[in-house]
Nucleic acid binder design. Structure first.
Lengths: 337, 337
DNA sequence: TTATATTTTGCAAACGTTCCCGAAACGGAG
DNA sequence: CTCCGTTTCGGGAACGTTTGCAAAATATAA
């Protein structure tokens, strides 16, 4: 049998209420008794019963991390797994723990996230994976009364914060980098059109292009799917329709890598024949061949910040928007003219 | 106020005990009352209070996933993040949930894992990350009385199962593949000597070498550190001391990639000048340039199996060892003679 | 019909906390 | 020494379940 507060009370000749107060540092207990309680608690190896605490407090110190199941295959947005440990560590500092939920984007039914929260009385949630625009989960989140932090989105309510990289800026930086290195015929392989991030990255792309008064043909812009094989298909289509192209911006690293390895087989070399820049800054970028230029998202910073934002909400703060600036990793995949 | 079992009882003119039994499908309640209880529960939107359940049952339906914090940087063993969703999904089927703990391998103090389990009354743990041999956590695990599944290790007790790929076989397969393609001067860049997996992969390497009666010089075997930059350093050292070498087996993909990208800068091409095979089968392998031959570990299978093993233990089963066979991904990084 | 066996239900304790409220102890002022 | 204000403490309800045991209801057998 585990030792409880009652055992301590017995050994100290105190009531359970006093012991509880002593243990929790509440005001109103003599410091002498507090220390003796602490001592006995330690002697007996007391471990508080969290279930009991949760029962009376109706709170759980548990926060949910919502993963889009389609990320499970490691194809889409592997970057998210890189920030998990950082979320976790930050929460742990305040004695919160993360509990993982994978939800299937396609079979999602209204209220699912509410049920998840209610069942375990979660203190809050971090929605970590990207869902397509207008996905019903966003409706649920908007009407929810629990602290939520949504990544890579712009949902903002009294009790819902969001954090994301400045995707427009990211798209701009990548394109600008190509332009600054003398490229004029530039292609863009984006993700699906119904993802917010795709549109924002596109916006940045356009901004840089217009700024430089370049002409980009419609066939130089492809809406793909963020997967490696998508990148492969797109690059060939792109080259075929735009033989003069000298550089391509891929809206994520995976597509870029798929394209590069596929081109190598056809004898097209990067960056000699064509320059490539990706997006995400996966840690393998720097070990890629050639090291892949990429817009790097600071996952550690996002993870930490997301956890902090959630804790703020839990402690009564109100929703806010945080943008983190992406950085450029130059790699060696862009040729300088 | 949330609706409780009591509200249902009131509305049904029943006692809470009957309602509880009806809800839990226990024997001894008339099917008519059961259906009416179910109906009312649904009407009222009843959600069971898990804290209360846990309090009386002294069990939690929560299982801990123990991550070695040093994996957090994404450098060491990124493969582990690939199996997280699979563990999670399998557990979810049985209404168990995973809660993530990162523990710092270096500052670990005896009993830490015990505390983790006790605090939340975890039903069990999956220790997912590799710790060095003789790490104190293994002592704790051996003396623990809770269900545990350890990955990539061979700790086995009444209540502790382990699951791992056949590393000896993996090392053998990789080496054999090089030999079968006509390579005779083969190098091996391994991980640190105080990791079980390093030694097992080495054993497989040796086995294949001896079987083929090849002579390998001592300088062709390097004990590195499983990181990209480690791979880079090792390959240069290796080539310098063994100019005639035609193929290198890296004990993980990260080192292999670090080596390949670094060699490219020196004009050494893979597989034309030197052949490379890695280990882990990271999903980026197939998009690497060139697609990287690798011993692929089936993370999905391991994740699912690990969860199943744990559930077995929780349900009273006893510890067992499961080995899964690695597969070979041929890629295009090994030249055939 | 009565007696008995079986099924179905209710009562109440228990799980380990927190917290409100009142009682006891203590301190200082008069 | 008395009185009153503080500080410290204890009693007990409450949180929402499960479960052993007894009571009630129902079915079965004679």
């Amino acid at each position: 049998m585990r030792v409880s507060i009652k055992d301590i009370a017995l050994k100290c000749n105190l009531s359970v209420s006093t012991v509880s107060r002593a243990l929790n540092g509440d005001y109103g207990v003599k410091s002498a008794t507090r220390t003796s309680v602490m001592k006995v608690a330690k002697e007996l190896g007391y471990v508080p019963n969290i279930a009991a605490k949760e029962l009376v407090s109706q709170k759980s110190k548990l926060i949910g991390i919502i993963l889009n199941e389609s990320d499970g295959d490691g194809e889409a947005r592997p970057a998210f797994f890189e920030l998990l440990p950082h979320i976790n560590k930050t929460l742990a500092i305040f004695n919160y723990r993360a509990i993982i939920y994978t939800i299937n984007s396609n079979s999602y039914i209204r209220g699912e996230i509410t049920d998840i929260i209610n069942l375990r009385n979660l203190s809050g949630c971090i929605v970590v994976s990207v869902f397509r625009e207008n996905h019903p989960i966003y409706e649920d989140i908007k009407s929810l009364n629990n602290p939520i932090v949504v990544l890579e989105s712009s949902i903002l309510t009294r009790i819902c914060s969001n954090i994301n990289t400045d995707e427009v800026m990211g798209g701009y930086m990548a394109t600008r980098y190509l332009i600054d290195n003398g490229h004029k015929q530039i292609g863009f392989v984006n993700g699906p059109q119904n993802f917010e991030i795709s549109n924002e990255r596109f916006e940045g792309f356009q901004k840089a292009i217009e700024e430089s008064q370049l002409q980009i043909s419609d066939t130089a812009i492809i809406w793909s799917n963020y997967t490696g094989s998508g990148g492969k298909d797109s690059i060939h289509q792109l080259i075929q329709n735009n033989p003069a192209i000298t550089a391509v911006f891929f809206a994520n690293d995976l597509m870029a890598m798929g394209a590069i390895s596929s081109m190598a087989e056809s004898g097209i070399l990067v960056p000699k024949d064509i320059s490539i820049i990706g997006y995400d800054g996966l840690f393998v970028c720097k070990y890629y061949n050639p090291p892949l230029a990429s817009v790097v998202i600071d996952n550690a910073a996002i993870g930490v910040r997301a956890a902090e934002l959630l804790l703020e909400l839990i402690n009564g703060g109100s929703g806010k928007t945080v943008r983190v600036m992406p950085k450029l990793f130059e790699g060696k995949s862009v040729r300088k003219y």
